[in-house]
Amino acid sequence: TDVTFHVNGRNLHLKGADEELLRRIEELIRRGADIEELEKAVKEWEK
C-alpha cells in the first residue's frame, strides 16, 4: 500500500506499507507524535 500522511505541514510518504505499519503510524499520530517519531517508526519497520 502506498499512502501519504500529512503531519504538521510535512508529508510522510510510505511505499509498500503493510497493515501493521499503518496501524502503528495512526496510533502515533493519535498520541500527537511529531514527524521525526513517525520517520523513526518507519525506519524500524523497514529493517
Rank of each mutant, 00 (worst) to 15 (best):
H13V: 15
L21D: 01
H6Q: 12
L14Y: 02
A41T: 11
H13E: 10
F5A: 01
E36V: 07
R10E: 15
K40T: 12
T1P: 07
K47E: 13
R10Y: 15
T1A: 12
G16E: 05
L21S: 03
I29C: 04
K43Q: 14
R10W: 15
R24C: 09
I29S: 02
K40H: 13
E26L: 14
A33Q: 07
L21T: 09
R30V: 12
L14F: 04
A17M: 03
W45V: 05
F5C: 06
W45F: 11
R31F: 10
L38H: 00
K43F: 11
N11H: 15
T1Y: 15
L14W: 01
R30N: 09
R31Y: 14
E26C: 09
N8C: 06
D2H: 05
V7R: 01
A33S: 09
R31S: 12
R23E: 08
N8G: 08
L22I: 15
H13C: 11
E36G: 07
L38Y: 02
I25M: 08
D18W: 02
L12V: 04
E46A: 12
V42F: 03
E20R: 07
D34Q: 08
K47C: 09
D18V: 05
K15M: 08
H13F: 08
L38M: 08
E26N: 10
G16W: 06
L14A: 01
L21V: 09
R31W: 13
A17Q: 02
G32V: 03
E26P: 02
G32D: 04
L12S: 00
T4F: 06
A17R: 02
A41I: 14
E46W: 09
R31M: 11
H6L: 11
V3D: 02
L21P: 00
G16N: 14
E37Q: 11
T1C: 06
R24Q: 13
G16I: 07
A33V: 08
L38T: 01
D34E: 12
G9A: 01
K43W: 11
E27W: 12
L21I: 14
K15D: 05
H6F: 06
K43M: 11
E36L: 07
E26H: 11
K15G: 03
A33R: 06
I35P: 01
E44L: 13
I35Q: 02
K43D: 11
L22G: 01
L22W: 02
V3C: 09
V7S: 02
L22A: 03
W45G: 04
H6T: 14
L38D: 00
L28Y: 07
D2A: 03
H6G: 03
E39T: 08
I35K: 01
I29F: 07
R10M: 15
R30G: 12
N11C: 15
L38A: 03
E19L: 11
G16S: 08
G32S: 05
A41Y: 15
E20L: 12
E20C: 10
